[in-house]
């Protein structure tokens, strides 16, 4: 491996990392918003919207992000809807993630026995109070490991952004290899930069999980 090469490429990777992180986190944020919205609609069992949520979730969980991005970037403009590559990236990621987050939130809620809500109601709480003081705190604790797993999954999925010509980490590595054929250096840097991006999320996630469990259940 040539040290010079690595040092020379480093700034390019740093740029790519920042772009990947920016779009990645925008996507994660959108995913959380979509996930909460879907869960809300499902919990309230709002007619029509409820079915739309199901269609949305199945659609996005059962098609590759690559295809979703192609659709957003190449097909929608034909219908007159034009977006920057960056917006496509975060929206695509957000839509995909929203479907996964909604499923995670649902299983978190389902892990709470109905008797929990019933005893809250029987104490005179309204449904909203039961949700806020009894159900959500418990569901959040159950969901946290799933949420962290989704975040990591989404940040990894950013590697397909290159297809809509975003200069993310993957794009940068492929580009450099294409031009200078320093394959070993480029791929090593690629692995290292993904780890730089994802390891902190993993570590923080495990810490958060432990902390919430202790705070919530005294365990």
């Amino acid at each position: 491996m040539e040290k010079e090469v690595i040092l020379q490429y480093l700034p390019l990777y740093r740029e790519a990392l920042l772009l990947t992180l920016r779009i990645g986190w925008q996507g994660v944020l959108l995913a959380l918003v979509f996930g909460v919205a879907c869960t809300w609609i499902r919990q309230l069992k709002i007619p029509v919207l409820k079915s739309l949520v199901t269609v949305y979730i199945e659609l996005f969980r059962n098609t590759p992000l690559l295809v979703q991005l192609f659709f957003l970037y190449f097909a929608l403009p034909k219908a007159g809807i034009r977006m920057t590559p960056e917006l496509c990236g975060s929206l695509g990621l957000g839509l995909l993630g929203g479907a996964y987050m909604a499923e995670t939130f649902r299983s978190g809620l389902e892990s709470i026995a109905p008797i929990q809500e019933e005893s809250a109601l029987s104490l005179g709480m309204t449904s909203m109070q039961a949700l806020r003081y009894v159900i959500l705190p418990q569901a959040a604790t159950y969901s946290i490991s799933g949420i962290v797993a989704n975040v990591i999954f989404l940040l990894k999925e950013t590697s397909v952004f290159s297809v809509i010509s975003l200069m993310d980490l993957m794009f940068t590595a492929k580009d450099l290899i294409g031009m200078y054929a320093k394959t070993l250096e480029c791929l090593t840097l690629l692995v290292v930069f993904y780890l730089i991006m994802l390891l902190p999320v993993s570590v923080f996630g495990s810490w958060l999980e432990r902390r919430m469990r202790r705070a919530e259940f005294g365990a």
Binding site: A113, I115, Q116, E118, S119, A120, V134, P137, Q138, T141, E216, F217
Partner: peptide, 9 residues
Amino acid sequence: FQSYDLFPH
């Protein structure tokens, strides 16, 4: 209730 329904958190 019959089953323990205290709030575990």
